[in-house]
Amino acid sequence: MEKKEKSNLRVLTHNTYDMHAIWDDQRPFVKETDIGESLGWELKPEGLCKDDSCIPYTPLNDPDSGYVDFLDITNTLGFSNVLDVELGLAAVDTFSLLRSSALKDRKAPNIELPDVDGQLHSLSEWSDKKKLLVAFSSW
């Protein structure tokens, strides 16, 4: 098993993101410019923002450092996480809002999945048609 350098944090969501991190008391602080790619929400003066939505957020640490407390960000967004300090890994449930909304409203999110050739396709490509989604595993 490969151990991660303490200067890095690997973030596992539906993808894998490696980012530079500074660790303080077993908490990773990452560049605020790296938040957007891994979590889908960007840190702006008005807070954590995605599209037209913003959640007020005040960094706990020095805002001029350019680094933010990764766990505090995920907690503010309501994303559950599991952190492994020794491995330098954080798994984050970034789909919680999407999932609860789809279950409640029964509106399919515009998911994007690769075909057998790796070409990405969005559900919206068939937005005017009936769709049957089949998920299976070969185990």
Partner: peptide, 28 residues
């Protein structure tokens, strides 16, 4: 039929499994 969302244990389980699948960590 209404499908209930995952509870916190189920979410945490998936996150541990996500780490395990990436690292093969027996702990996770």
């Amino acid at each position: 039929h209404t499908v209930e969302d995952f509870n916190l244990d189920e979410i945490k389980a998936r996150l541990h499994f996500r780490i395990a699948a990436d690292t093969r960590s027996e702990y996770h």
